[in-house]
Nucleic acid binder design. Structure first.
Lengths: 156, 156
DNA sequence: TAACAACTATTATCATGTTAAGTATAATTT
DNA sequence: AAATTATACTTAACATGATAATAGTTGTTA
């Protein structure tokens, strides 16, 4: 697109913000920045970022059904099913049917799964801490608050 | 995990923030909130969110090579290759080799591709505008600035 | 100029995102 | 109780994310 055409567009039509100032893209890039060191850490564990999220949720809240697990891990339901299966094969979780409601599937972290969390939590804490320092404590909290306002699951 | 075990953990070991206060997860959830209406809009176009990003970059900056396109679209290189192929098959872009450097592949938006952008930009502008209202103009700009601080590609 | 390294792009592989369809069980209605 | 509806989960299909391996081209150096 020529410069002239771009200027014309700006004058006569509603235009999107430049991709440099686009909120969805800013979210993607920020996530990249955060996840790079975390992914680096996870390389040694042999599990993925999403599998780490599932194990963390299970470690924090204990045994739960797949639906709840999906919500707590911010994963889609089908992804959660697949990841649970993978983690079971790796020996990091167990799956059991609910006898009261046989549709329900409970997932629970194993000793081995908990070990993964325990062994890497200090490093993960360090990574989070580095970002707090980079942004400043106040900015960090502000950012979390602003992001929460966009969360579709949040109780407005 | 029992309550007692959780309390013990908190006392003796470094702990991660609750998933409720985790920055990576907050970024995912915020993105979900933003992308829901955008994906809804894109349903009518038959293209995906990533394909939309590629077309937008091409519309804004004009013809460019795949590497630059990947950066401008915030996509991985291999993803960009695949998406360019898909978009070419749909008739929304053209691909040409650079005669000066035959490694390089140029991608350019077609009239049909530009039409997709033009037809849906007003709706996209409306969606962005809604979020600005929801957050407030000042918060919106603050959020973009804070996110930019996490962007690994940003010039600190 | 031949060997080597660097660069651009493509392809491969596995995991996940996303939507839709399907299955089994439970709850509700008639 | 049979039919219907709703729920929890699973599977399928296609696109993308992420990493690694490969191919073709250009640049550099011995």
């Amino acid at each position: 697109m020529t410069l002239k055409a771009r200027i014309m567009n700006t004058m006569v039509k509603p235009t999107l913000p430049s991709t440099e100032r686009s909120l969805p893209i800013a979210l993607i890039r920020a996530r990249e920045g955060i996840m790079n060191p975390i992914r680096e850490m996870l390389l040694k564990t042999g599990i993925t970022e999403q599998q780490w999220r599932v194990l963390r949720a299970l470690a924090e809240y204990g045994r739960m059904d797949t639906k709840t697990l999906a919500q707590r891990s911010s994963l889609l339901f089908p992804s959660t099913t697949r990841i649970s299966t993978t983690l079971r094969q790796k020996g990091f979780v167990t799956q059991t049917r609910d006898d009261q409601d046989r549709r329900r599937q409970f997932v629970e972290i194993t000793i081995e799964g908990q070990k993964i969390i325990d062994e890497h939590t200090p490093h993960a804490v360090q990574i989070v801490s580095d970002f707090k320092i980079k942004l400043g404590e106040e900015n960090y909290e502000t950012l979390l608050d602003l992001l929460a306002m966009l969360d579709p699951g949040a109780i407005d």
